[in-house]
Amino acid sequence: MSYLSLILQITLIVVISPLIGQLMIKIKSKAEGRRGPSLLQGVRELGKLLKKGEINPIGTGSAFALAPAIYLVSTLVLSAIIPLIALKLPGSSNYDLFWVVGILLIGTIALGLGGLDTATAFGGMGASRELMVAALIEPSILMAIYALSIRANSSNIFKIVHATLSNPQQIASPQSALALIGLVIVVVAEAGRIPIDNPSTHLELTMIHEAMVLEVNGPKLAMVKLASSMRLVILIGLVVNLFFPIGISYSTSSVGSIILGIVALVIKVSLLAGLLAFVEVFLAKLRLFRVPELLAGSFVFGFLAVTASYFLPVIKA
């Protein structure tokens, strides 16, 4: 049953991520007064890309050929090592948040190397920018992990979520709020959303992520697109479960609680994704060289969260 729920969790992420991505587009369109495409548009696009023939750009090597697959596999692995629908998944004691960050980076690196392997200016430019953002996110993300792991005395995600569930009032503390803000900025940056990067841009010079995968086409592009939307959903799911783990299934033994876990996850992720999309309407993409300001800000949030966790006395209501 526990393996079944693991497979269920991975399948769920694969299935809902194109929908959630489309939901965000829909909400943005509505907020801007447009009708927006149907919710199934993402799935249709993936299907269309899968049917297309591949084009191998002349001069590229195996790094380019393998990059989309590694990116997708790393994302699939991520969806297997994070508590999204249940607290007890097989192997849950074998990974921690640092490992999760490492796997995230492996995906980014794979795409970056693929971009460099195309030997075009766009591939290199995208890789350079994406890696720069990834490098500068690292302090913020690790600091947020630090802040979270102080209260659970462990960096294991399952333990952190468990600690939150068993002591929910811990969440209503300044340190949690600070860590949450820091992590949300990290998620926005890591998923390449406004104001760091604009996923729907068509102007090469402002692209980060899209420039890197400019040469990727056909089924490989489908992989990259699917993986990107999965990463967004996984990151959002991670944040909601770290801070609001309501509804997550305690065990994997009862079917009812797992169904509840799935429903809760879908609702929570849709809500936060919708909120992000709605806020994006009011924001413009930052200049690349102002991105460090935002990331420094998120680092400071994490830093304050850690200091506050050490210096503020523990409140027991």
């Binding site: 690196i109 970056g112 392997d117 890696l131 500068l136 302090p139 600091m143 680092f299």
Partner: peptide, 25 residues
């Protein structure tokens, strides 16, 4: 931790650069 994290992030960039520029393309 901030120092270690920034170092880790930048070393990723450095090594991608060394490998991607030197061996790929």
């Amino acid at each position: 931790l901030g120092v270690v994290a920034l170092t880790a992030g930048l070393s990723v960039l450095t090594m991608v650069k060394a490998f991607g520029i030197g061996f790929l393309g």
